[in-house]
Write a protein that binds this DNA or RNA. Sequence first.
DNA 1: GCAGTATTGAATAATTTATTCCGCCTTGGC
DNA 2: GCCAAGGCGGAATAAATTATTCAATACTGC
Lengths: 282, 282
Amino acid sequence: MVCLLKIRGMLEQMSIIERKLADFILDNAHLLRDYSSQQLADAVGTSQSSVVKFCQKLGYKGYPDLKLAVNEAVITASTLQRSDSHEQGQQQSDIKTLVEQLQFSLHSHLRGILEINDEKALRDASDCLLQTDKVLIAGFGQSGIVAHDMQFRLLQLGKLALLHTDPAIALQLASTLDQHSVLLLISESGQNADLLKLARFARQRQIRIISLTSFKTNALSLAADIALYALSGDENVRLNALLVQLAQQHLCHILYLLLCQRQNNDHLLEESSKLLDLLEQQ
Amino acid sequence: MVCLLKIRGMLEQMSIIERKLADFILDNAHLLRDYSSQQLADAVGTSQSSVVKFCQKLGYKGYPDLKLAVNEAVITASTLQRSDSHEQGQQQSDIKTLVEQLQFSLHSHLRGILEINDEKALRDASDCLLQTDKVLIAGFGQSGIVAHDMQFRLLQLGKLALLHTDPAIALQLASTLDQHSVLLLISESGQNADLLKLARFARQRQIRIISLTSFKTNALSLAADIALYALSGDENVRLNALLVQLAQQHLCHILYLLLCQRQNNDHLLEESSKLLDLLEQQ
DNA sequence: GCAGTATTGAATAATTTATTCCGCCTTGGC
DNA sequence: GCCAAGGCGGAATAAATTATTCAATACTGC
């Protein structure tokens, strides 16, 4: 399941041959079962060695490894589909269908997060945030929503989390950071000019940078000390945007919960619940 | 699935070595993924050639064929099991455990949405938003994140979606609404004083109100024309907050996708993708 | 006890997969 | 425009995995 999403998400940054391979696999995932690397190469019109290199580039040990992963994806998809439609062989209302589709896509996207993100990266990121008191978060547009979310979480943990929607002010805020601070940059594409400015600025000052982008090589993740990724790659543009955002949020939430676990925060919890009570009083 | 049953069914008529192989496979089906025929032979204490012969005797072309079949069985079983009950008491890294727990909770929370929300309410809400051009969204604190999210979505659909984090300004914005406008109020508790003010104001002006709150009777949902609910109720306070927020967002996203479907929006899609390109240019 | 048959594993062949190496092309600097 | 650096793809080759052969042994029915 995840495997195919991963491939789809990396389509953009593939060479021609790699892309042909990817397309073939996506279109004929179910056929792969009976293909050797040589056969696949022939089917696509390339060399066997290229097939193997393709597999390795995607992070698999070799061809059999990819094959197994694709097979798993095929099986999982068909099993889930079966158990879903099994519930109601009848036609469902459009809303139900839509909701189930959304939940299914979401489920697969989120499941992929642990596969494309090294556990070490997650641990490093949470270490990083645990040790610092001051975090500047930056993200614009859709990623701005994620940024707000994360700001809220970090504030709850007692961290000074800075964020501003104005890029100029964000840069001003950056000038208040020191080496013990952390810069968290959130961007779908990883190419946003304002964020790159912030990254350059932080690099000069030796401020640690965590990036959170789509899963593909991009300027931002290259500039970051710790790069986190969200899966992307659904065909439906609008749905894809939703899913990427939710995957980003999900990663933030994972970091948040990790921090909760590691930070003895009983007093903080009381504090913030008191605060909430205050806020919500009628 | 069939594969393991087949093996089990033939247990009786097997020779000693074959039986050892069969037992091992049945007990360690999940391990087979990473075993070569030689490794399996070693693990069982036999020769590699016997392994191959065993496979062929069972009707498979050879070892890889059996391996694939066993793998399928394992996947199918685990997929079905996971969707049924979520118990896997294996030793995992803390991160993996945390993530799986989170995803499981999320999954169940989201699945509940269709149960606590009338389909009619969802349809009404989307009708309501479809027909209007001007929406004032209000939500503070954590719900503010959801509000921002929804604002972004509605703007993408070409709706004038207003939102301000300052309650006073929000009220000012409300004074620009007319009977064709919609007020969308988002609150966890449904008791926030500022939102209630907005609701009273809108009632007087006969502006339609959609509320999005936790699933319990509350002042806000009573004041609303259409009340939508997010499940709440996890024991862990912090996790619960996350889940409620995500459920709220999920509801918003459902509305958004419904609107996408119903609104012929090809030109809008182009527009907004052009916009995004502009924004993300380096 | 003996012929016939089945089972096993060592050796080997065949196949599949992984790596190396080389030529080609692109890219970026001068 | 030229050259160096680096990535890409494929042919050749190495390594590994898998399949077959064959001989030894054990077992079965007579």
